[in-house]
């Protein structure tokens, strides 16, 4: 099988308060199977680093099939790398040239402090969801599922917004480090579905205000978030969020 070698530079940072630096790991990045995923390439580099008695690169990952949202780093200046609609765990080395320079850095945002190397703290995302990213229904007897009639087009659009994996690429890609696409996606899902209607004003007010309080920047319609989103969540989500927010403000909620 074909192998490739790379000029590899990786951000290394011992802890949240340590200064970070880019380390040249080119000597460890030779003869990488081109069918390996980007993370499997890092696995291989780590095996070689450990054999040499060096500290492996810390990075987050879990499902490795593009759905859990735990992985994510900036590859050559782009969140999750240059391939559209792809998480870094689904990026394969066949899409890189032999000898290419690859620079790997963590997602950078004030609201996402670095924990170690490429690992960042994205708990701010959970806090935004806790502020209202749900329909408040207790567990128990409910009306028959088909008593909610939802047209296929509406349901499909709600699904497309709900497909967000919460990886944080949108924040990393945004020059303002705004979390608008992430927040807008959840608001859009419930703005479209009848189940979300009773709480729509309270939901959008609380989620947007929480997002602002956590240190994310404002949206200035640049669109980098949509380009970086591995699930290709549409910018329309942000428009819907802004509209919902305005309506909630006018209604005095």
């Amino acid at each position: 099988m074909a192998t490739k070698s790379f000029v590899l530079k990786v951000w290394r940072q011992d802890g949240p308060d340590s200064p970070g630096t880019v380390e040249d790991l080119t000597e460890y990045a030779k003869d990488v199977n081109e069918h390996a995923s980007f993370l499997e390439m890092l696995d291989l580099i780590n095996e070689r680093l450990m054999a040499d008695g060096k500290r492996p690169i810390e990075f987050d990952s879990d499902c490795r099939e593009g759905i859990c949202g735990q992985c994510g780093c900036v590859v050559n200046g782009q969140a999750h790398g240059s391939q559209r609609g792809t998480t870094v765990c689904q990026l394969h080395m066949r899409s890189f040239e032999d000898g290419q320079t690859i620079v790997v850095e963590p997602f950078r945002a004030t609201a996402f402090p670095v924990i170690k190397d490429l690992v960042v703290d994205r708990s701010a995302f959970d806090k935004i969801q806790q502020a209202g990213g749900y329909v408040s229904v207790p567990t128990g007897p409910k009306p028959d599922a088909n008593s909610f009639k939802i047209g296929k087009e509406v349901s499909d659009r709600a699904f497309d917004a709900a497909a967000c994996i919460g990886c944080g690429a949108c924040v990393a890609a945004c020059p303002n480090a705004s979390a608008s696409l992430f927040t807008g996606a959840k608001i859009t899902q419930f703005a479209l579905m009848p189940q979300g209607a009773p709480e729509r004003k309270r939901r959008v007010s609380r989620m947007v205000e929480t997002m602002d309080d956590l240190g994310f920047g404002h949206c200035s319609n640049i669109g980098e978030c949509e380009a970086a989103c591995p699930k290709e969540i549409s910018l329309e989500s942000i428009a819907i969020m802004k509209r919902e927010y305005l309506k909630a403000m006018l209604a005095g909620s």
Binding site: A145, N146, I150, S155
Partner: peptide
Amino acid sequence: ANIIDQCVAQGVPFAREYGGEL
């Protein structure tokens, strides 16, 4: 059967037919 009712009430976007049913 309760599970589907519960999840739909939560707003889980299940696949639907054109008539709006699951």
